[in-house]
Design a binder for these strands. Structure first.
Lengths: 344, 344
DNA sequence: TTGAAAGCGCTAACAA
DNA sequence: TTGTTAGCGCTTTCAA
């Protein structure tokens, strides 16, 4: 800044012929203090005339509150379409007259501690810890006793509320969509738990989605013909579906772990001359942009990024929510054109 | 925060048996002040022992600098993959020990003024004004005389540097890629200037890309068979290319305005039994995720989001750059599989 | 080489 | 209803 802020509250007070106290009261709009209407008007006029703007730094030093929330993410801003998280958070923060300081770390460890300290040094009123994909984390100890909200992650034993997508219910919905269309057999899950070498136990989203899916199917005495574990990308989706096709397994419906996997599946099916949804129905997860570009457009369960961002900052202000509860946000079903009854 | 920061510098000084002045000098690591090694050690030990952390708010009040940069965007965080801009900016800011306060407005006007004021009240050292797509803006008057950098936008007459993608050169490169493969005719531009009803004059990116493209072609005595003006999405790409195919125009190469348009073009070509790149070559712009998922993968000119974010904050620190210069960032060519020589 | 003291701009007891 | 005064935690003359 070339010219620092000029006019201070003292200037306004002087110009209005009142004390700083009076000026402070009217300028910060405090209730319950009785100031004559005349003084109020004079202060306001003076402030207006001088172009007064409060110095938030000075105010914060005194009040120990900055109306600022720190966000520490492990790359959420990078994930395609997850800028939605930020937008939701921004929105909710703006409604409460707060600002967001966004930071990013490559993961946990010393870098994360440094970032958290930078935030804490600036006296942020709270910090939101966000992860790119749903997983367990252990918050840095600097955060103990601070107001914290976990966004897209869980930290058992740490005293802070979490916001995660309701993956189990989404899995159930995926199953129900297929059942409702009349599917009972020839159903395969592509991507599965993502039980691949890097994540042998599967990942949170995978495990929950599969659990919900199996549950819904079983409730109607139906079941999966198989679960193909692979990376959740277009490449693997293409390869695995083609393999299934080549092997000649009966295929009537696919539950793909992500829209990227679905994209690969579309390519493999098209190549094999099978049409979606007449020959093969597809239900997917995430609702990335591509889901609506595909033809037919993809029926998918949307990751509620925007809503999650919003909820996270709402929880910052929710005094009751201090207890470490897990808030599961519904993943809305986007019904489009990739599901139809199986061929008779 | 449940427990405010405890230990102050006064505590450290007292514990170390020195004055606050001494403590301040060693803790803030100021050069050119001669403090005995003994005092230094004692202060550092005390700080460590007490778990001292500086209060940035107090420091800022005194020094009038916050090591914080405000970012005002009109939705850049929302655009797919443009979270990259934020990541680049975050990176460059972190290198200089600065933090970013990110905000968003629906556009210009009073909302923007409010946001800018909120930032200025908090004494941010600079403000980066960012737009979702490249365009002209008029910065709010509150920003006059402040340190400002324009990211992805231009404000003629406003004294601040701009960072924009080098669209003209990208257009030239697109042309050269085709020429190098041997294309001379049957070349169509899909999307063009985006001279559609909503933007009858075309948009910045469209105009510059077309200009560069035509220039490169003309330099080799080649030319476009036609420019199809349409919205830059998959839907329109599909429709317009299909129309071209239906009309039976000779088609050997396509320059698509965005990867989304290319996506639609792929669909239309596949439907018509034309293969990419054997029958028709495609060069595209943007390099969204989808570009690498397509088969064949798409040859495209990448929007240098990450680099742009980085440059913007670098300019904040570049004293020389105060003059209102326009910094054009190269759009790298991603050569993949969608261009081949025309069939003989 | 170190310390005393003033003060950044604001809020909040406490008095008047 | 309003003013005096004392800080918030830090930096920075200036003097010792």
């Amino acid at each position: 800044m070339t010219s620092g802020r000029r006019v201070t509250m003292a200037d306004v007070a002087r110009s209005a012929g009142v004390s700083p106290t009076t000026a402070s009261f009217v300028l910060s709009g405090r209730e319950g203090v009785r100031i004559s209407e005349a003084s109020r008007a004079r202060v306001r006029a003076a402030a207006e005339a001088l172009g007064y703007r409060p110095n938030a730094t000075a105010r914060s030093l005194r009040t120990k509150t900055t109306k600022t929330i720190g966000v520490v993410s492990d790359g959420i801003t990078t994930t395609p379409f997850a800028g939605d998280v930020v937008r939701g958070a921004l929105e909710a923060a703006a409604e409460r007259d707060h600002l967001l300081i966004i930071t990013e770390t490559d993961g946990a460890g010393p870098a994360e501690t440094a970032v958290v300290n930078a935030l804490l040094d600036r006296q942020t009123d709270a910090v939101i810890l966000a992860t790119m994909y749903t997983r367990y984390v252990v918050p840095p100890k600097e955060l103990h006793g601070r107001r914290v909200v976990l966004l897209n992650c869980l930290a058992p034993g740490f005293d802070a509320p979490s916001v995660v997508p309701d993956e189990i219910e989404a899995g159930r919905t995926a199953g129900r969509v297929l059942l409702a269309a009349g599917h009972r057999s020839g159903i395969w899950a592509i991507g599965g738990h993502q039980a691949v070498p890097a994540t042998p136990e599967g990942i949170f989203a995978g495990n929950e989605r599969m659990r919900g899916l199996q549950e819904a199917l079983r409730a109607e005495r139906a079941m999966l013909d198989g679960v193909v574990e692979c990376e959740w990308n277009a490449e693997d989706g293409y390869r695995e579906v083609r393999a299934l096709l080549t092997a000649g397994v009966p295929l009537r419906a696919l539950v793909c772990s992500t829209d990227r996997v679905s994209f690969g599946a579309y390519q493999a099916l098209a190549e094999a001359g099978r049409s979606v949804p007449e020959d093969v129905s597809i239900v997917s997860f995430d609702d990335q942009d591509i889901a609506s570009w595909l033809r037919p457009a993809l029926t998918t369960l949307a990751l509620p990024h925007h809503e999650m961002g919003r909820r996270a900052v709402e929880l910052v202000f929710d005094a009751e929510a201090q207890v470490s509860a897990v808030h599961r946000v519904t993943m809305p079903l986007r019904e489009r054109g990739s599901v139809a009854p199986p061929r008779p």
